[in-house]
């Protein structure tokens, strides 16, 4: 009321969803910055590098967005992805299954972990942080146990089953198939979040779980579905990871979930639940991968990339808090 005019403008910005443009603007500024100050940042190969790194984080971030909008968190996605990829590798290398089946194995393993998360959280009312921290370690160990701590190798392009790399990663001509799959999955998830009951209840649970329960919504069921979706996304991420990097090393993957969570948070999804968008998460993914490649083009190595990723996450959250404070003032 003190600054009625200003708050009107802010309200308009919030209503029209321009906040997403803020993240997009940041992404464009970063691209411009690195194009000017980096070496060869504005090139085909750099662009491909950025895409490569975005596939698996992108899939995980999409599932993670649903979870975080419900007010939960899934810390297990990184190791679940690797666990699936490892076991799929065992199926290929040790059990000699056809590659197509092995890819299905990746998704099934990851989805089962998602189901376990969901059941423990919804039915036993355990905190998501604790449950998924537990399944992070369990999946980390489980993958290694099944693989007997052996590194698993997926076929390369020139090998017999190399078609899977051209189908999921790049075509012979170098066309980025991974980006196509990410886009397709993104569209499907976008429809799921904005046009279906699953999406509506995802927001409802995160906004006010008790009100949703009173409205007669089966909270437990939808929570389980959301965590299953997160596991499923991690499984698809596993396929893309295997297709991109070919080599799966046991006991890795922990820490990758933080990139997915960071992408979601940078994209404006609130850890308190109820608010969030997939578009934002996708922009968040690219902000991180652009940052990584951009810093590389300025000859700053991985320690700097990690450092600046942290800075971006904190800036994004600060911005979010500032935004919601302004929104609260608008309301009063």
């Amino acid at each position: 009321m003190v600054n009625g005019e200003k708050s009107g403008v802010l309200e308009a910005i919030r209503r029209s969803g321009l906040q997403k443009l803020l993240a997009l603007g940041a992404l464009l500024i970063m691209c411009t910055f690195f194009s000017i100050f980096g070496q060869n940042f504005f090139s085909h190969s750099a662009f491909m590098n950025i895409l490569d790194a975005s596939y698996y984080i992108g899939f995980m971030a999409i599932g993670q967005t649903f979870v975080i909008i419900t007010g939960g968190i899934d810390l297990s996605v990184g190791t679940v992805m690797m666990s699936g990829a490892l076991i799929g590798g065992v199926a290929y290398n040790v059990w000699h299954w056809p590659i197509a089946f092995c890819l299905v194995v990746i998704v099934i393993v990851a989805t089962i972990f998602g189901l376990i998360n969901g059941l423990l959280i919804a039915k036993l009312h355990l905190p998501p942080f604790i449950v998924t921290l537990g399944t992070q370690f369990i999946s980390l160990g489980f993958g290694s146990i099944v693989a007997e701590v052996q590194t698993q190798q997926y076929p390369t392009v020139n090998q017999a089953d190399g078609w899977f790399k051209t189908a999921f990663y790049r075509t012979q001509g170098g066309f980025p198939m991974g980006a196509v799959f990410l886009l397709l999955f993104f569209i499907a998830a976008y429809i799921l979040l904005t046009r279906t009951k699953l999406g509506r209840y995802t927001y409802a649970i995160g906004s006010n779980e008790e009100a949703a329960r009173i409205s007669g919504i089966n909270i437990d069921k939808w929570k389980v579905i959301v965590y299953v979706l997160s596991g499923f996304s991690a499984g698809l991420a596993g396929i893309l990871y295997a297709a991109t990097y070919t080599t799966i090393v046991p006991q890795t993957g922990n820490g990758l979930e933080l990139y997915a969570i960071a992408a979601v948070v940078i994209g404006g999804t609130s850890l308190a639940g109820g608010v969030g968008s997939l578009v934002g998460s996708l922009i968040g993914v690219f902000i991180m991968t652009v940052l990584k490649d951009g810093l590389m083009s300025m000859n700053m190595q991985s320690q700097w990339q990690i450092f600046f990723t942290g800075v971006v996450v904190i800036l994004a959250v600060l911005l979010d808090i500032y935004r919601s404070k302004k929104a609260a003032q608008v309301k009063n």
């Binding site: 509506r200 209840y201 927001y203 906004s207 006010n208 009100a211 409205s215 109820g274």
Partner: peptide, 15 residues
């Protein structure tokens, strides 16, 4: 008992 992040219509017909 409303969900603040949802619209009026979404709140009324939730579930």
């Amino acid at each position: 008992n409303l969900m603040n992040h949802l619209t009026a219509a979404q709140n009324i017909f939730v579930g």
